[in-house]
Amino acid sequence: MPKRFIILLPPLLLVAVALNQLRLSATESLSPWSGGGFGMFASTDSPGSRHLHVYVHNAGARKEIAFPASLETQVLRATTLPSRYRLEQLARAVAVAESGSSFSWDEIVVEVWANEYQPDTLMPLAELLREERFVFSSF
C-alpha cells in the first residue's frame, strides 16, 4: 500500500464513517447524535428523546410489555438505530420473557417513535419512525 494513502488513513476513515452515518440516518433512522457523523448537538432527535413500545398481539387484543432492566441496553440500541435486525433481536428477547405469560399471543409488534417540536411553542409531536411485526413459530 503506498505511503501517501496510509498516512491519510485516519481522515479517510473519518469520512467513510461519517458518510455511512448519513446513509444510516436517511435509510435506517439512525439518530443524528450517534454513529460517528458529528451530528451531536445538531438536532432534537437524540436517542433520549425517542421512545419505543413493544406489544404482544392476538386476534382480538394487544398488551404492552414493560421492559425488564436486563433489556435496557438492548432497548437503547434499538431506539438509537431501529433497523429491522435490532428490532427483531429485541422482539426475540421479549418473546422469551413472555413465553410463560397467561396472555396468549401470536405476534410481537415493535414501534419506535421520535418527537418533533413546533418551532415557536416546542409542542412535541410524536412521529412513528418504524413499526415492525414479528411472528416466532418456536414460541
Binding site: V17, G36, L76
Partner: peptide, 9 residues
C-alpha cells in the same frame, strides 16, 4: 455500536 459518541470515534 451504535451508542458511542463522536469523541470516541
Amino acid at each position: 455500536w451504535p451508542l458511542a459518541d463522536n469523541h470516541a470515534y
